[in-house]
Design a protein around this nucleic acid. Structure first.
Lengths: 232, 232
DNA sequence: GCCTTCTCGCGGGTATACAATATACTAATA
DNA sequence: TATTAGTATATTGTATACCCGCGAGAAGGC
């Protein structure tokens, strides 16, 4: 039984094999090394990790519930395909939930929260300048989490996290679209200004616009890609 | 997410043992025979069903992801405790999602959908008159599903289903509060009228009010119960 | 030559055995 | 008597073996 000698994660290290497998597969899907529609055979993973199928099967159940993979009995698991409709629907929901969260957070936001938002956006501007999509993405997540946490609705926060986790690879694609990061920095600045004014309705509108813009651009991009492939 | 076990015709039974276990535990929790905080030992279930622990453990992973149980490694599973804060947060989110879904469905709703809504509400009125909470609940679910389906956002529908499934026992409690069913029938009538006018904003407002009223009354009731117990 | 059917093998579903850990209980000591 | 350390037991985590459904490919009939 190998113990603790596998791989040390920075902060929180999964305890059970199942959790490690869940993280591994999620990362593989999000990073793109596992593509939508691709099969995910239990035995192969078991062999690669040198473990039995049991923890892997349990990981599959969890990943299935969270929407990462699709399992058909007696046939096996594949990475869940995601269509432009899925993306479009996702952004509509994200926009709604974040808009509400932001508006709710508005009267509760502390000066230090505002400072944090400003600081994060400043860092995002730098990340945009050097074209650091991944860094920008992380800062952006923190930006949104700041007001989603402040709004106090923990279920909302958890729900948004679940959704964005599933669509992470698409959101990164959206940020990588030309000009999108700088665009987003400007939108964030407007959001912070609205927070300062404690204008909840404006905050909601701006936050929703931020999400919808990302979504709109991304769907457009996906359709363009599809047309390109369709022409071939 | 699994299909709702409520209105399901007994045509197709779950194929795998795991699915059967998932349904069984869900039903037990929703019906109240498994209480929040109560332990859910693998072995006991395995013995009762005369099967091994393997399918049960897989069912646990799924139930955990859907929020029904809470599993701590090497300690075991308990039915997820639900606080008044959870209920309050749930209704806030339900209100948001359904409000949006209703508003989106507004311009798309066909005459037959409106007729369906009216018919369902008429049946609800009868159910209310004879105090049939469970029947009312089923009709109410169909009522909401009608416009959530019409809105076309499948992810939204799935998300709402996941949430309401988890809070089913509380929603039934809410309906059982004195006068709530007749109250709800009146609210539904107003919603149908707004749909007929194709007034999307009004529809959204009314649908949100419908959810918030249930939530408010239920939280009130929970707090009252708690005070009562605290006095003992 | 094509279609049908049977068989076989791959892979997922389940059972069982074993390892590891948390909790309860006991006992010993201050 | 109270506290704590040690042990026993129960329960979860993991590994392995077996079973069976499903599809691919071979074999035989038309």
């Amino acid at each position: 039984m190998q113990r603790a000698s596998i791989l040390e994660y920075p902060v929180e290290k999964p305890q059970t094999l199942r959790e490690r497998i869940v993280d591994f597969i999620k990362d593989s899907i999000v990073s793109g090394s596992l593509k939508p529609g691709e099969r995910v055979p239990e035995q192969e993973i078991a062999a690669n990790f040198g473990i039995s199928r049991t923890p892997i099967r349990e990981a599959f159940r969890q990943l299935e519930s969270e929407g990462f993979i699709t399992v058909t009995p007696r046939k096996g698991a594949i990475v869940s395909p995601i269509t432009d409709k899925d993306v479009s629907e996702f952004y509509a929901i994200k926009s709604l939930l974040e808009g509400y969260g932001a508006a709710s957070a508005c009267p509760k936001l502390q000066p230090k929260d505002i400072k944090r938002l400003e600081s994060l956006n400043a860092h995002m501007e730098k990340a945009a300048a050097r074209g650091d999509v991944k860094g920008f993405f992380n800062l952006d997540s923190q930006f949104h989490d700041t007001f989603l946490t402040a709004c106090g609705n923990e279920k909302l926060l958890a729900l948004v996290h679940q959704l964005v986790g599933q669509f992470e690879r698409f959101r990164i694609t959206a940020l990588a679209l030309p000009g999108r990061m700088n665009d987003s920095v400007r939108q964030h600045a407007a959001i912070v200004a609205a927070f300062k004014e404690a204008n909840a309705d404006l905050v909601r509108t701006l936050v929703m616009a931020n999400a919808e813009r990302s979504g709109g651009l991304l769907v457009e991009d996906i359709l363009k890609e599809r047309t390109k492939y369709g022409a071939h």
